[in-house]
């Protein structure tokens, strides 16, 4: 049995057997393991490098003009977040349970006085903490670079972007954990996670585009279909928070502004929170019914 497992048992015994403390203990372990994992370090570095690159290049091009506003900097950062954060969260989540199951760790864990709900929540919280660390580090470094470069970006923009990226990460982590609960092997889980990432990042948008062009999809359906994708909900919310409007998104954006007014942020929020809560609940249900091996 690994050192981690021993530590976990001791930690579980040392604390009061309440649910919250169980969850927290599991979360701490998960957080520490995640921060030590090589894959996670790789994702963090990739996110950091891409974000810094975008910030550096775009600030270098516009800094001298001192123009603020919604520009390529923000667009570029949104783009990076849309690419990297879901991949990171999905693959991290996908490894969460399936990996432990494969290593026999799960059997041991469930032999402890913890419920399956606590295990899922603990893992979720721990991984969420690791993702938060990664996102805040990346965007924090980007803000610093932008500030040094002449800073035509509002601080508010970066804070909103960080907060919304965390929400996006949480939703994708939920999906990842669900995949992990379903899969028998870690490799299958991670593969499925990557496939889902591809589907959410590219396939669904391309499908919507093709549908709009081929079937003359009306604006309303276009907007609602797009809203269902958590990545697009994140993107629209980010734009809305920066500009107080998504009219930058053309006729469909204008339609949404005119039709839903103040309800728009709530709609984006509902979409993202839905993607956090529903897969996580499903993961708990599935995990509770499956054997730990």
């Amino acid at each position: 049995m690994s050192a981690t497992a021993l530590e976990t048992r001791e930690a579980v015994e040392a604390h009061a057997p309440g649910m919250i403390s169980n969850v927290l203990t599991l979360a701490w372990r998960e957080l520490r393991d995640a921060l030590r994992a090589r894959s996670f370090l790789l994702y963090s570095l990739a996110f950091l490098a891409l974000g810094l690159g975008v910030s550096y290049v775009s600030a270098a091009s516009t800094g001298s003009l001192g123009l603020s506003g919604f520009g390529r900097t923000t667009a570029g950062l949104i783009n990076i977040v849309l690419l990297v954060v879901p991949l990171m969260a999905l693959s991290t989540g996908a490894g969460a349970i399936a990996g432990d199951r494969e290593r026999g760790m799960l059997l041991f864990l469930l032999a402890q006085p913890v419920s399956r709900l606590e295990v899922v929540l603990g893992k979720y919280l721990g991984l969420a903490g690791a993702l938060v660390a990664c996102i805040t580090l990346g965007l924090g470094a980007c803000s610093l670079v932008l500030a040094l470069q002449g800073g035509a970006t509002e601080p508010r923009t970066m804070l909103w972007l960080a907060g919304l990226s965390i929400l996006l990460a949480l939703s994708m982590l939920s999906v990842g954990v669900l995949v992990s609960a379903l899969a028998r092997r870690a490799s299958v889980a991670v593969g499925t996670g990557v496939f889902l990432w591809l589907a959410l990042v590219f396939v669904s948008d391309l499908g919507i585009m093709a549908g709009t062009l081929a079937m003359r999809l009306p604006v309303k359906s276009l907007f609602l279909a797009t809203l269902c994708n958590p990545l697009q909900a994140f993107k629209m919310w980010a734009l809305h928070s920066i500009d107080a409007s998504i009219d930058v998104l053309g006729p469909a954006g204008l339609y949404a502004m005119d039709t839903y007014h103040d309800a728009l942020p709530w709609m984006f929020g509902a979409s993202l929170i839905g993607w956090i809560v529903v897969p996580l609940l499903l993961a708990v249900v599935v995990f509770s019914k499956r054997s730990p091996v």
């Binding site: 957080l31 921060l35 001192g66 123009l67 603020s68 903490g129 690791a130 938060v132 660390a133 990664c134 996102i135 805040t136 580090l137 965007l139 924090g140 470094a141 980007c142 803000s143 610093l144 932008l146 500030a147 040094l148 002449g150 800073g151 035509a152 970006t153 509002e154 601080p155 970066m158 804070l159 960080a162």
Partner: peptide, 23 residues
């Protein structure tokens, strides 16, 4: 037009980064 404050941006950057170091 007047550019937004660089200091505030730097401070929010540091704030964000400090969250990650806290974690």
């Amino acid at each position: 037009s007047p550019a937004p404050s660089r200091l505030a941006l730097a401070i929010s950057g540091l704030g964000l980064a400090s969250v990650s170091s806290l974690v």
